[in-house]
Amino acid sequence: AAALNMLGHRERFVAVPFFWSQHYDVPINYVGHAERWDEIAVEGDVAARNCLLRFKRGGRTLAAASIFRDVESLEAELAMERTVPV
């Protein structure tokens, strides 16, 4: 999308953003984008470093952060891709 826009096309970037990081033995994943949210739904145990946090607004998941929950993170990303307006 960036290259096409530099060439004068008007392409909209619709991919779900993501990043991941590895801090020593702890993988941290983040998918989506949430500037503001009204709820954080916690699945798992944050203190035990095995969790998925869903950042929600109006009941809709805007982003998800996870530690040792790679499959759930990918599932959250897929669900967000399915709800991105075209």
Rank of each mutant, 00 (worst) to 15 (best):
A63G: 07
D70V: 14
R12C: 11
A48G: 11
H9L: 07
P27I: 15
G32P: 01
A63E: 04
E81T: 04
F68M: 12
V16M: 09
Q22E: 13
G32V: 00
E39G: 02
A64H: 01
W37F: 15
Y30E: 06
G59R: 00
G58V: 11
H33M: 01
R12W: 07
E77H: 08
L53N: 03
S21Y: 10
D45M: 10
C51Y: 15
E72G: 05
G8W: 07
H33S: 04
Y24D: 12
G59L: 01
P85S: 09
G32Y: 00
H23T: 08
R12V: 13
L7F: 07
N5F: 01
E72I: 02
R57P: 02
R49V: 06
L4N: 07
L74A: 14
L52G: 00
T61P: 00
R60K: 10
T61C: 00
V46H: 14
V16I: 14
L78W: 09
W20L: 04
F13H: 02
F19D: 05
F18A: 08
R12K: 10
F18R: 06
T61Y: 01
D70R: 09
A2H: 04
M6G: 02
I67Y: 07
F18T: 00
H23A: 06
P17S: 04
G59K: 01
V71H: 03
L4S: 07
N5W: 01
V86Q: 15
E81N: 10
D38F: 09
R10S: 11
P85K: 06
E77Y: 09
V42M: 03
L4T: 07
A65F: 01
L74W: 10
I40C: 07
V84W: 05
H33L: 03
A1W: 04
A64I: 02
M80W: 02
N29Y: 12
A47L: 13
Q22T: 08
Y30A: 13
P27Q: 10
V14P: 10
V86N: 15
D70W: 15
G59Y: 01
S21P: 03
E43Q: 15
G8F: 09
I67W: 06
A48S: 14
L52I: 00
A34M: 06
I40N: 03
W20G: 06
N29I: 02
R10A: 14
G32L: 01
E75I: 12
H9A: 13
A2N: 04
